[in-house]
């Protein structure tokens, strides 16, 4: 399992990364920690002609208090999120979920931006971002724009990030007093969730689902029911509404729909 050949470009700034993207266009692929991209390349499911290594752009690795929100550089590693006092105090679910990704070695290398940009519906961090109502900041040839989490995941392994854009920052609302829960159900600890649920209750209720569709998604029906005053039982019964869960060796769509209900109920109960 060896990657096909490619040209390698290491860049040390966001501008240099954008320049590399502009020069190489579709042939280039950004690599942050590489923990999503390299496995695909080893199986030759991804064969970029140019790999642009953004992993050591130090200006994109930070966790800052920006007043109303936490500003997190896109290249911040999972381990840094997991152990950040600021994140633990102001958005504890994010620190917790970062600690649920893969295994410790993966968390030492994988980055928040890389995980979000990969857009895997089975990943943990996108659900946390959705439940927190965060956003991502991307920079491209025409400048910078902020994309709400709810608009970011557009299709299976597809995001609103354009091919010539670079994610630079993730913005997380401060929710120090929010009730929250993350429920991850799998058969083996290191694996992706068969189904996962992230819930943040902070006046309004946000509930996001892992591995219940082509993209990371919000459980809209659950959120609406809670907003309308439904009980936990009533709301969690709607967990699978509007979803199209995948089918694989771990379970079919019906089982996943059931799991979503169970896990939403557990999440809401724990968070209440």
């Amino acid at each position: 399992m060896i990657p096909a050949t490619f040209d390698y470009l290491e860049v040390d700034s966001a501008d240099a990364a954008l320049a590399a993207l502009a020069e190489h266009g579709d042939e280039a692929k950004l690599m942050a920690g590489g923990h999503s991209l390299i496995p695909l390349m080893k199986f030759r499911l991804a064969t970029p002609a140019v790999v642009v290594d953004i992993g050591r752009i130090s200006e994109l690795s930070y966790i800052d208090d920006s007043g109303g929100h936490i500003a997190i550089g896109a290249l911040t590693r999972h381990r840094a999120l997991e152990t950040s006092d600021l994140v633990k105090a102001q958005a504890p679910i994010l620190a917790h979920v970062a600690g649920q990704v893969g295994d410790p070695a993966v968390r030492h290398r994988g980055t928040l931006g890389g995980s979000l940009a990969h857009g895997d519906p089975a990943s943990d961090l996108p659900a946390a971002l959705l439940a927190l109502g965060g956003s991502v900041v991307v920079r491209g040839p025409s400048g910078e724009r902020e994309i709400a989490a709810s608009d970011f995941f557009t299709g299976f392994l597809e995001t609103a990030l354009a091919p010539d854009e670079l994610m630079t920052e993730v913005r997380i609302p401060k929710v120090p007093n929010a009730k929250w829960s993350y429920q991850k159900f799998n058969r083996r600890a290191q694996d992706w969730a068969i189904v996962g649920v992230a819930a943040v209750l902070n006046g309004e209720s946000r509930v996001a689902l892992v591995n219940m569709g082509a993209t990371p998604i919000q459980a809209g029906a659950v959120e609406a029911a809670l907003a309308a005053g439904a009980s936990i039982d009533e709301a969690s019964a709607k967990a699978a509404e509007g979803t199209s869960p995948p089918e694989d060796l771990n379970g079919d769509a019906e089982y996943r729909a059931h799991l979503a209900q169970v896990l939403v109920k557990r999440a809401l109960t724990e968070a209440s």
Binding site: F185, I194, N250, D252, Y255, H258
Partner: peptide, 8 residues
């Protein structure tokens, strides 16, 4: 005895 199988 997978979870899906047990649940079913």
């Amino acid at each position: 005895a997978t979870p899906a199988r047990v649940w079913r």
